[in-house]
Design a protein around this nucleic acid. Structure first.
Length: 964
RNA sequence: GCCUUGGUGGCGGAAUUGGUAUACGCGCUAGUCUUAGGAACUAGUUCUCGUAAGGGAUUGGGAGUUCGAGUCUCCCCCAAGGCACCA
């Protein structure tokens, strides 16, 4: 062998041999595994070290699965439509495909250096007409099924990119690509009816076909934003017109004190004549129209609005008329664009009501017995009011039972002077006693009695105790003499107020609600109570729970034909057209007679024509509109003159189904062969960035479900397991970016340390989904490790005998590495490999006393379990051992149970849970034996001598704990 | 504000069901070898008291359950990511 490990030489050699032998293209095995990477957008900048992290992981899994007898499908391709290539084309007047082709070549070269198991025969490029033919085909099918429609609603328009954006493309009201303020513009658009699938997209997140991280699922749920509520109509007083409102809190309807419509609402125009202050209203409408989304949502959130003077709406539940406002805190695009306002139970309405001095009526009580306790609450207010604080002020302490809360709120509501001491009796007796004793307020002389008393207050929760205490903090004695006001039902207040002495603490969730509510009824409030509870002030619905009331009220609405239950989604239909050049043409022809007509299937693909100028027109049409040759065509239906659709598809189109095409990339007849689809779907492992959690993953799921409905695919979900890659940050902790000049280029790392070291390092950095800073020194560590493996080859000797200790460690390592790879815990798998190699090195290479040599079969096993991470080195050493066949055609070793147990173990001796001694004992030592040894041990006796041994706990193979 | 995930040495991070906290890697310290620098190798490295033997403390903070808690329960704090006037 060569004396030195030279990764450059062996990596190149093996990549070529694997490729020419078609090593990864054996699809004939019984078990299948589909490992998928999110295909990259081939940018001009090339790869940085963060890119390959996910690819390395799928490659490790792919190689591992191959060794376990799977046929593995592991493809790669290019998501090549997109703005950067187009912008480059605008600037340099070259066709975007030119830059794209060049970038793809660079990316491919960079990827090949890692030695990935990609089957390049299945390479996909979304800009290839043979590929986008099927993207267009899917659109056509959606069009046929009525899922693609034209709309003229106002849409998000980016003035800089000169294109429409979907809601998913916005970041806080800004264009996510260029950061420009998005404006609302009315434009004809193609829209996909994704909301038809909202219910399924949500429900199937919990199906067994999806095994994803909770956080990703949660993001999708959030985005879909399902809400269950009711929609009903309210008459305008003395008029025929009505407005419809949507609410999720129908149970609070008796608390409605006004109603609000969004500025866009049509009722404003309809009632123009009735609105006596229309000038003012119009001013407001204009002002809010000029507000950007940013101003409307992000800034201050100071609510504004104008009352529509002369207009009132009637609450159908109690026939009471309430004023109507226009305010931009109500969104035109969600629900009906109109709401009933219940300031007592909605934060936003509350804020608005306070600003415009509107009445606040509570109609929900926290479920704590408000009605029954009303009288008692009044009593409490009275009693507290009667305390004469001028007497012995320093000795008055007001105690509440409960566990925590805010004294300030309490003092405010009951008008207690700031310098009066307020405290708490904890609900939990031990806590209460601790606090009393610690603060020295009462020395508990008569423990039994005290316990009784305290626990009586606390556990029965019957008494709001207002007591005074004489105490002497100096010697920690004192006397508690009670002025007791036993008030039945004060439990309610105790629940509302939990006050802790001595510490400044913020209120917990429940305390918040209760405190807010109490403020509300006492008129000192600063916020609304928004939780569920029991109805009050609600006529014959009183005393119902919120949930019951919602049911009954909805039923009543339906009976009276005023409204019904309604489910709303935050998710909107997918605005699917872009006014740009570099995208798939939408396969539609507009005919004057027949309207929008789909291009016949056999005429697909509709090719992207050559243009002179790639610049977007800015008029809401794409550059394609300027090419008369292409635009003017005949109607496929009637043969008359027609014009082609000039909008193109968004970048997300091609990536919404690409995973299917890899399975059957060259099929010209069908999108995918039915049998092959059954053989390979679903994707077993999908790895990519978490930033795609709500867009790409949602779009792909939507298309997949559609393809399921039309019989193209047979699985309900495309991706069985999704794993997100944690970012690799720069050494300075920031994101890698040209701007910070902190980008690490993988080519350089590979050039210096080799692909195997790089692969190993990225897998070793930490938990796979976590963001971690790059540290080139870490790669050095991996290189050293591989050097050790390399040098161990010298220690092999066929004549040597079995070494029990090494056997045990080897089989433990096999077991751990196997389990860790299966669970994507690559970092700990590598740690374990290092432990093994360090031990082998110590045992064989460095031991001066023993002349032992390593067994060849042990070394082979090591190479096998290392091979997914460091394939080139493993293959090279495998061959140097004299094997002819590739290591990746071997079988993954199994951990032999008989080697897994140590003969001797270290048994820990604890005294009262503290480690005092460690003893080497046989693994099968009995409890009695170890007890005897432990109790006689000198170090142990230091702690146990003269003490009574209460108990001894024995945990086999672990420890013995002596309790004294 | 809401949701999700997390908080362990100087740093990245380990720790099946509650059972030896700090594995593995980086960095650091000392030594060997080198003309020197670097590399390589050897030993050490949670903190703290102590010359040492040895003791004490420690998994964001506080309390609880337990013979025993990084792990379980309650409360609080902080960080990252997502959502956010969605009625």
């Amino acid at each position: 062998m060569n004396n030195n490990y030279d990764p450059k030489e062996i990596e190149k050699k093996w990549q070529e041999r694997w490729e020419s032998a078609g090593l990864y293209k054996d699809y004939s095995r019984a078990k299948k595994f589909y490992a998928l990477d999110m295909f990259p957008y081939p940018s001009g900048a090339g790869l940085h070290v963060g890119h390959p992290k996910g690819y390395i992981a799928t490659d490790v899994i792919s190689r591992f699965k191959m060794l376990n007898g799977y046929s593995v499908l592991h493809p790669m391709g290019w998501d090549a439509f997109g703005l950067p290539a187009e912008n480059y084309a605008i600037k340099n007047k070259v066709h975007p495909s030119v830059a794209t082709e060049k970038n793809i070549a660079t990316f491919k070269k960079q990827l090949e250096a890692f030695g990935f198991t990609y089957d390049w025969d299945r390479e996909i490029d979304t800009t290839d007409p043979a590929y986008y033919k099927w993207t267009q085909w899917i659109f056509l099918k959606m069009f046929e099924k009525g899922l693609a429609y034209e709309s003229n609603e106002p849409v998000n328009w980016c003035p800089s990119c000169k294109t429409v954006l979907s809601n998913e493309d916005l970041e806080g009201g800004l264009c996510e690509r260029c950061g420009t303020q998005v404006v609302q513009k009315k434009l004809r658009q193609w829209v996909l009816r994704m909301t038809d699938y909202a219910e399924r997209l949500l429900a199937d997140l919990d199906s067994p076909e999806i095994n994803w991280e909770e956080s990703i699922k949660e993001q999708q749920r959030n985005w879909i934003g399902r809400s269950e509520g009711a929609q009903f109509e309210m008459k305008i007083k003395n008029r025929q017109e009505k407005i419809e409102v949507y609410t999720t809190r129908l149970d609070t309807v008796f608390g409605m004190t006004y109603a609000v419509v969004a500025p866009e609402h049509k009722i404003i125009g309809q009632l123009k004549a009735q609105i006596s202050n229309y000038d003012e209203v119009e001013k407001y409408l204009i002002a809010s129209q000029n507000k950007t989304i940013l101003e409307r949502t992000e800034l201050q959130k100071e609510k504004t609005g104008v009352k529509l003077e002369g207009v009132e709406v009637v609450n159908p539940f109690n026939d009471e008329a309430v004023p109507l406002f226009v305010a931009d805190y109500v969104l035109g695009g969600y629900g009906t664009g109109a709401v009933m306002a219940v300031p007592a139970h909605d934060e936003r309405d509350f804020e608005f009501a306070k600003k415009y001095s509107l009445p606040i009526i509570a109609s929900i009580s926290p479920d704590l017995g408000y009605e029954e306790n009303l009288e008692n609450i009044e009593k409490i207010f009275k009693i507290v009011a009667e305390i004469d604080y001028s007497l012995k002020k320093e000795n008055i302490k007001i105690w509440f039972n409960g566990t925590l809360g805010v004294i300030g709120h309490y003092q405010k509501i009951f008008n207690i002077p700031q310098d009066v001491d307020c405290g708490v009796l904890e609900k939990d007796f031990d806590n209460a006693r601790n606090i009393i004793e610690k603060l020295g307020y009462a020395k508990i002389e008569d423990k039994e009695n005290e316990k009784f008393k305290v626990s009586r207050y606390i556990k029965d929760n019957l008494i709001l105790e207002i007591g005074t205490f004489e105490h002497d903090l100096g010697n920690n004695t004192g006397k508690m003499f009670d002025i007791e006001y036993p008030i039945p039902g004060s439990q309610w207040l105790a629940e509302c107020y939990r006050i802790t002495a001595g510490k400044e603490r913020r209120m917990g969730k429940n305390d918040n609600e209760r405190a807010l509510y109490l403020e509300l009824i006492s008129g000192t409030g600063s916020d609304a109570f928004a939780g569920d509870g029991v109805l009050i002030n609600s006529e014959n619905y009183n005393n119902l729970s919120s949930a019951e009331a919602r049911e009954k009220m909805a039923a009543w609405l339906e009976e009276n034909k005023l409204g019904q239950k309604k489910i709303n989604f935050k998710m909107r239909d997918w605005i699917f057209s872009r006014q740009r050049y570099w995208g798939e043409p939408i396969p539609i022809v507009h005919c004057e007679k027949c309207g929008a007509v789909g291009v016949p299937e056999e005429q697909l693909p509709v090719r992207l024509p050559e243009v002179e100028n790639y610049e977007p027109t800015g008029t809401g049409e794409s550059p394609l509109a300027n090419i008369a040759d292409w635009v003017n065509t005949t109607c496929p239906k009637c043969g008359g003159p027609a014009k082609r659709e000039t909008n193109t598809m968004p970048q997300w189109a091609g990536s919404s189904w690409y995973y299917l095409r890899y399975i059957d990339p060259k099929n010209d007849e069908r999108l995918i062969d039915q049998q092959l689809e059954k053989d390979w779907m679903p994707v077993d492992l999908y790895v990519g960035g978490a930033e795609h959690a709500t867009r790409h993953l949602l779009y792909a799921r939507f298309w997949h479900k559609f393809l399921y409905d039309i019989g193209v695919v047979t699985t309900l979900e495309p991706f069985k397991k999704f794993l997100y890659v944690g970012l690799i940050l720069a050494q300075d902790g920031r994101k890698m970016s040209k701007r910070w000049n902190n980008v690490i280029n993988p080519d350089e790392v590979i050039g210096q340390f080799g692909a195997d070291s790089m692969r190993l390092y990225e897998m070793f950095m930490g938990p796979f989904s976590q963001s971690i800073s790059w540290n080139t020194n870490g790669v050095v560590g991996m290189r050293k490790f591989l050097e050790k493996v390399w040098k161990l080859l010298l220690q092999i000797n066929t004549e040597t005998r079995n070494n029990k200790k090494i056997q045990t460690l080897l089989h433990k390592t096999i077991k751990k590495v196997t389990g860790d790879i299966e669970n994507f815990r690559f970092n700990t798998a590598i740690s374990q490999l290092m432990i093994l190699v360090n031990a082998l090195e110590k045992e064989y290479a460095k031991s001066a006393t023993t002349k032992a040599h390593m067994r060849k079969e042990d070394y082979e096993k090591l190479l096998l379990i290392l091979s997914p991470f460091a394939p080139h080195l493993a293959e090279e050493l495998w061959q140097q051992l004299g094997n002819e066949q590739s290591i990746f055609l071997q079988t993954w070793p199994a951990a032999d149970e008989k080697y897994l147990k140590d003969e001797e173990i270290e048994m820990v001796v604890q005294v009262n849970g503290k480690v005092r001694e460690r003893l080497m004992v046989a693994i099968d030592v009995t409890e009695d034996e170890i007890k005897e040894t432990a109790l006689e041990n000198e170090k142990v006796r230091v702690y146990t001598d003269g003490k009574e041994i209460k108990k001894i706990i024995f945990v086999p193979e672990k420890l013995i704990n002596i309790v004294i």
